[in-house]
Amino acid sequence: MTPSSSAGALALGDDALVLSHRLGEWAGHAPVLEEDVALANIALDLLGQARVLLSLVGDEDELAYLREERAFRNLQLVEQENGDFGHSIARQLYFSTYQQLLYGQLAAGDGVFAPLAAKAVKEVDYHRDHAEQWTLRLGDGTAESHERMQRGLDALWRFTGEMFQPVEGVDGVDWQSLHTSWHTSVSSVLKRATLTVPEGPQTGSWSAGAGRQGLHTEPFGRMLAEMQHLHRSHPGATW
């Protein structure tokens, strides 16, 4: 691992780790039992990907539990709070579409992330399909579900621009075409779901693509506090 590749592994690994934790928060709270199971399974896939990626960088537990907020390199999108189910599905649609396209490109190359990407993209296909099916169901459902789904999409739109900024150490990716393909794919789903593609800027004026630089939003600190509490309070504890 070159230092540059390590930076790339950290960015991709933190995306997977943080979203995994957020999805894990749904356990016991999802609208129906099947969704509890589905979201936990998606979280588990992401956790597995995170473990592989963080292990390329160093000790996975140290990296997950002992880093400060500023040392995390995940996108701000994945650290956003779950909100209601529509909000979480909007986040899933945005991120899984991105991850599917990004890992597809990485899998087709011969870079350091190709083996993991080739493996993970098959899992992510199911994540994206899950998000698409729910987007269609909520968007083309009741007035209430439609409105909530649209609200989630609108609220998270300003965090989507960061996904298409080149990531240090993640080579062989055509970020411009990634952005175009993402927009086409998401727009197609939203259209079929009778939803509107948000129109505002894809980055907040204050954010400056910040997650990758270690600048995070307010909910992230609270999430980390919960995620890291046990490990920090009881160092070396085992089951």
């Binding site: 099947e34 936990a40 998606i42 199911y126």
Partner: peptide, 11 residues
């Protein structure tokens, strides 16, 4: 459901 008792199964 696309996800069941384990990640590798659908219900």
């Amino acid at each position: 459901s696309r996800f069941s008792s384990t990640a590798c199964k659908a219900l």
